[in-house]
Design a protein around this nucleic acid. Structure first.
Lengths: 406, 406
DNA sequence: CGAAATTTGTTTTGTATCGAAACAAATTCC
DNA sequence: GGAATTTGTTTCGATACAAAACAAATTTCG
């Protein structure tokens, strides 16, 4: 039951039913392929004639293609339909503090090529570096298909309307018109998004076939910061001023340790990689001190996880404690939003078998309902490059999204 | 950018554009009345002929009516259109721990009659009492219009699909088929909802004319418990198993005072009326003890608020402290969901001028962004009967909601 | 083996309705 | 008093949904 926004609505036109049904067909094929025209007619409770007409349109646009005819128990054999993903390419870019990753992938998120280089902090220098790498990548994979756009994931808040990075503390960016600059430099359409939302979009649009994708879920990223991509009613939650999802700053203890945000006792101050590392080192978390210490020692969260898995007690303990606090944070999300699923991304997901019991215990202790306590928690290991998949999803998703209406 | 749910979608038909545009017109008239047909044509970028046809349909259904022709600077004078609310009646019911309120109101939420009686805890006895009162109310206001349904607000979780109360701790209800029972007893369509969501719906659908109603906001109720009605993208958030909105159990201090939910340090354990009262009394909050103490002393939160306003120091302090913790809780919501507005309902809203500065200060200390810190916080005093308005909204809203599509 | 049955996909046909344009009504300006 | 302006209704044609007929491909069964 949605309220119509009387200031910015989209009225229906003569072609509206066609647009809607066309998109339904596209999504049905995408998620249940292979599907014949007759299958579609049955699923949609619509005449086969109508399906033929809509499918012809999708075939003409090369959004889908016709595969082989398959066997049927009796009657004429159906010609199966599939979405075209293989030769529709996307560039995914993941800008992080130290390195920037750039991936060429197809429309299903399957990687074709992957590169990495040291992040250039100056935005316009980064843009021109990206532009040369993009054109080089596309040059060397010319036969593989046509590139339909660039998805760019940044560690900070973005504004969808203007395509600007509002604030990215790690890179010291403020109000950078990144979309426009990269679009101009490459001639491709560019989509930018912050990391947690991009990861959520990857789950929503690029999930493995067969895995149920719910319309209500939260993707929690644990890395230098702790953030969340929230999906409600099949739509991402951006908030009134594009800053929703900062779950890292729910308090666990209002008089707790200082957080880098200036407040005290935030979830992030207990569970970010920096927090886990400083716990491991037996040092209090501080904005400048911890970073410096880590640079000197060269220690990273990946090392601590490795040591924990190798059986080092101090590392195990540091990580288990992080897991306990993380569980409390997840319980908060469960109580607040009651998602059908939770995804946990970040380096710590690599230690899932170690931390899962602890997380589950913490959730059970604080979840209000038994169904809430049973919410599936799914790790999304960093080795799968979730942010790059998210970048790819940014380009692919608009093709499949429901038309905006009313 | 919404994802189409390929298991339960609504396909478009020939009449879809008409349904959409009809509903847009209805909402435009509702929010910007008076409006002429020509105004609608301009706002919707549509031909006046089309408007005439759609308006005729709405007039025939008596959803809107034609008012007087008004003056215009030149040309033919327009006939203004208005939504019909005055003689469309609704019954609103608010079931609370001690009393149950029943209101006869019109479609805009304006009360016609209001009654109160001691809550009957046995569900079926309550239903039959309600049924006799409903029929008596409608009998004595026969000339006022036709009753289009009953909205029932309960202090607990509800399931929209089945119309059952899943769990209402205050009444010790579990899985009560309330909608079916009351509908059968009265012959009217019944809508049930939990209190915070109903209050949010009241703000969304029955806001005073002129006040901007955002599509993203949160209504926080502070009473025996602390809950929230969350609205995102113009739609209420119910969650995967209908239990979203339990913001009362975000932790403020994981080792804090015990909460009635079994966990410790929940927001509710700091800010519920019970928490404020026990703070005032200098007693620790406990499930049985506090309730008993209050029953013996006869003290209520209203008394404490009155004493605080009268200048009693201890009362002031108890309430200010509640306000501080509430502010931290609101900051959490702001960081997590970035709503355009926050509403605060419950008895404590009556002391708004006293608590607002404290709340604002706490928010500023913990909000991540300056725009977040500036989120408008709007008190919704209990004297306006927000839950009853919410009950009315339950009946009125479906008439105005956007058609479900794709 | 061949006609009937079954199922898929295309084409045709009828009809509702969107969108444009013409028209009618009501009023002001010159 | 006629031109201009604005509102609201009516008319009309093109489009596209929906239903039905048709064509194609294959199995079943007499």
């Amino acid at each position: 039951m949605r309220k119509i926004d009387t200031r910015r609505f989209v009225r229906a036109t003569r072609s509206t039913p066609r647009e809607i049904n066309r998109q339904i067909i596209l999504n049905l094929v995408r998620e249940h392929q292979p599907l014949s025209r007759a299958d579609l007619a049955r699923r949609m409770d619509i005449g086969r004639g109508m399906v033929t007409s809509l499918v012809d349109e999708l075939l003409a646009e090369e959004a889908i293609y016709e595969g082989a005819t398959v066997d049927a128990p009796r009657g004429r054999r159906p010609k199966m339909l599939y979405v075209r993903t293989r030769d529709r390419l996307v560039i995914g870019v993941d800008v992080r503090f130290s390195h920037t990753y750039i991936m060429l992938a197809d429309f299903s998120g399957t990687p074709v090529a992957l590169e990495r280089f040291d992040t250039i902090t100056e935005p316009m220098a980064l843009v021109s570096e990206l532009a040369t790498r993009v054109s080089r990548l596309l040059q060397s994979h010319q036969g593989a298909g046509v590139c339909e756009g660039i998805g760019l994931v940044v560690p900070g808040m973005t504004d969808q309307r203007t395509g600007r990075v509002l604030f990215a503390p790690q890179l010291a960016w403020r109000d950078v018109p990144l979309r426009e600059a990269l679009s101009e430099a490459t001639g491709l359409s560019v989509h930018i998004e912050n990391a947690p939302i991009a990861c959520a979009l990857a789950q929503m649009w690029l999930a493995q076939r067969g895995s149920e994708v719910p319309t209500d879920f939260v993707y929690v990223t644990v890395s230098d910061g702790v953030g969340a991509g929230i999906v409600v009613n099949g739509e991402v939650v951006r908030g009134a001023t594009q800053t929703a999802g900062e779950f890292g700053h729910v308090p666990l203890a209002i008089d707790g340790p200082p957080c880098l945000c200036g407040a005290t006792g935030c979830l992030e101050a207990y569970t970010s990689n920096l927090a886990t590392l400083s716990r491991y080192l037996g040092q209090p978390l501080s904005a400048t001190g911890t970073r410096k210490l880590l640079q000197e020692s060269g220690l990273t969260i990946v090392d601590v996880i490795a040591r924990a898995r190798a059986g080092e007690d101090r590392a195990r303990q540091a990580i288990q404690e992080t897991a306990r606090y993380l569980g409390i944070g997840l319980a908060t999300i469960i109580n607040a939003l009651n998602p059908a699923k939770l995804f946990v991304g970040g380096e710590i997901a690599a230690a899932w078998s170690d931390i899962e019991p602890v997380i589950r215990e913490a959730i059970t202790a604080r979840a209000l309902t038994s169904t809430g306590a049973a919410t599936p928690i799914i790790p999304d290991p960093a080795s799968d490059h979730p942010r790059l998949r998210g970048a790819a999803a940014l380009v692919a998703a608009p093709t499949f999204a429901a038309p905006r209406l009313a």
